[in-house]
Design a protein around this nucleic acid. Structure first.
Lengths: 215, 215
DNA sequence: TTGAAAATTACACTGAGTGCGATATCAATA
DNA sequence: TATTGATATCGCACTCAGTGTAATTTTCAA
């Protein structure tokens, strides 16, 4: 009698526990070695050895070396999207996202954030993949926005708002890291979004604007 | 008599001509092979052979395989920035950028654009580096914006406007490629920027939307 | 207990990218 | 013309990331 696999999420037993353990050990070993010797100098052989597994098993857990770093920020997009889904329906999308981002970022260990950010900066390829993961976040967020404000006429606009919001987040976390975390991330974020609104929304509507003027 | 090295840009002689020729041959060979066999399957050995050079010389011209593709869109950022520098000073930044982007994109062969876009989509690493190059464009554009509107208080806002504009460009070129180039790129771009303004600038768009409800 | 699925491993292979050193070519000068 | 220095070209050997394959062990459910 099959015991109804509905309990999938609970205690998947030894297998699942081991799996999580191994994954964690790889991440820890990787992070430690990256910090110790730099991203490029730390080889997969070393990481695998430090994690107590074989080289081949590493690739069973991670598709590539940079996934170690990428996996650390993979949940962000979903977390922000979830917050947005909970936003009051009469809010402006941009406000809803700002509040969501502030809330999510507040829940992250800032020390780790700075360390990881520094690491990512040390390799061009990783840096590039990080940017790509932001695009992923944009799309996740966009999906949430469309659920909240389903009018298809607004779709493209919402896509851009998602871009913008993730962009502001990117800029904020950048500033935050470069400042060494002196100001709280929430504050940096709010400032960014405020500056954005000042720049976009308010500048004198009196000026002749969108004339299709060739130059 | 040293002939005034000021003429650097003109006909730097045989050496420079050869150099450009080789670079072009590598690019051509690479592009052809990428299209023929796919990005991953085309090896550097093959590309070098097809370009009539040695494998080692390839790396003298390009830092890596993906640089062949990246080099094709490397000028974009500067071109847009130059256009922005020429914009009337009373224009709104976002309008200035939009016009600049429309102008620059109009000068690009769309067939190539679509082909290259498809290629980039075929490799995650290249895709990632492409995103990274957009960030580069953002920064180039931001520099131009700061020259035009130097008020330091607006700096962060302008940084975000640059993000936004490049984002709109990214989205447009994405839509354009996915549409297979049916609509002219300039039109797609304008629509994007218009949708953006509608979504952002208007005080409360959530109430007065024409409910074009679809499935 | 048994059998399927998941996890782990070794081995061999391809291909990107680098370091090094040798040789060739260009461009200018004595 | 010979010399010289910078720029190009090339071959070789190396490291390392990532993959394919196939064999072995471990977990888990029936």
């Amino acid at each position: 009698m099959p015991k109804r696999d509905v309990r999938e999420g609970l205690s998947e037993g030894l297998r699942e526990r081991k799996r999580r353990g191994t994954q964690q050990r790889i991440t820890d070993a990787g992070l430690r070695l990256f910090i110790e010797k730099g991203y490029d100098a730390a080889t997969i052989d070393e990481i695998a050895a430090a994690a107590g597994i074989s080289r081949r098993t590493f690739f069973y857990y991670f598709k590539s070396k940079d996934e170690i770093l990428l996996s650390l920020q993979s949940g962000m997009g979903e977390m922000i999207a979830d917050e947005v889904r909970r936003a009051p329906p009469d809010a402006r999308p941009l406000d809803a996202i700002r509040d969501a981002v502030v809330k999510v970022c507040a829940s992250i260990h800032t020390d780790d954030m700075i360390a990881i950010d520094r690491l990512m900066r040390s390799s061009e390829a990783v840096q590039a993949r990080k940017q790509a993961s932001y695009v992923q976040h944009e799309e996740t967020l966009f999906a949430a926005l469309r659920e909240r404000w389903p009018d298809p006429a607004r779709s493209t606009g919402l896509r851009l708002v998602a871009m913008l919001a993730i962009g502001a987040t990117r800029l904020s976390s950048d500033m935050f890291s470069r400042e060494g975390g002196r100001r709280p991330i929430g504050e940096v974020l709010r400032d960014c979004f405020r500056d954005l609104e000042t720049e976009i929304a308010s500048p004198c509507p009196s000026l002749a604007s969108s004339a299709t003027e060739g130059g």
